[in-house]
Amino acid sequence: MNYDSTASSLTDTTDPAILEELLSIRSSIDNIDATLVYLLAERFKCTQKVGRLKAKHELPPSDPEREKAQIKRLHSLARDAELDPAFAEKFLNFIIEEVIRHHKAISQEHQ
């Protein structure tokens, strides 16, 4: 991958010591982003298995009660992690929408 972790429009205008600290923090962010991508990939592998199981047994693509419970759980986790629960819910809803879309596609393939 051709990724320049030192890319910044601040290079010529920022004190080198501050820039070094900024780049160090950004490096941590980059590592977290990479971890998130791989964790999401693993999550989607699991939800694909769920989708295939649901399709095989003609179960609906979504499970509203499960989704409500997950959101409630996520709110609690977010508060514990000092993350805005509303943001965490938006993020989970985005993921759930994608999972349901995948489940519907899998279900159509099995018809």
Results as ranks from 00 to 15, higher is better:
5 S>M: 10
5 S>D: 14
7 A>P: 01
8 S>N: 05
15 D>F: 13
16 P>M: 12
20 E>S: 09
21 E>V: 01
22 L>G: 00
23 L>K: 05
24 S>W: 08
25 I>N: 01
27 S>L: 08
28 S>M: 10
33 D>I: 14
36 L>N: 12
36 L>V: 13
41 A>W: 13
42 E>L: 13
42 E>T: 12
45 K>H: 03
46 C>Q: 10
47 T>W: 06
49 K>C: 11
52 R>S: 00
53 L>I: 07
53 L>N: 06
54 K>D: 06
59 L>A: 10
59 L>N: 05
63 D>T: 01
63 D>L: 05
64 P>H: 03
65 E>K: 09
66 R>P: 00
66 R>I: 08
68 K>H: 04
68 K>I: 01
72 K>C: 05
73 R>N: 10
74 L>F: 06
75 H>G: 15
78 A>E: 11
79 R>S: 15
81 A>W: 05
82 E>R: 09
83 L>V: 15
85 P>M: 11
88 A>F: 06
89 E>T: 07
91 F>R: 05
91 F>G: 00
92 L>A: 09
95 I>K: 10
96 I>A: 07
98 E>F: 03
99 V>K: 04
101 R>K: 14
104 K>H: 03
105 A>P: 00
105 A>E: 11
105 A>F: 02
106 I>W: 04
107 S>M: 09
109 E>D: 02
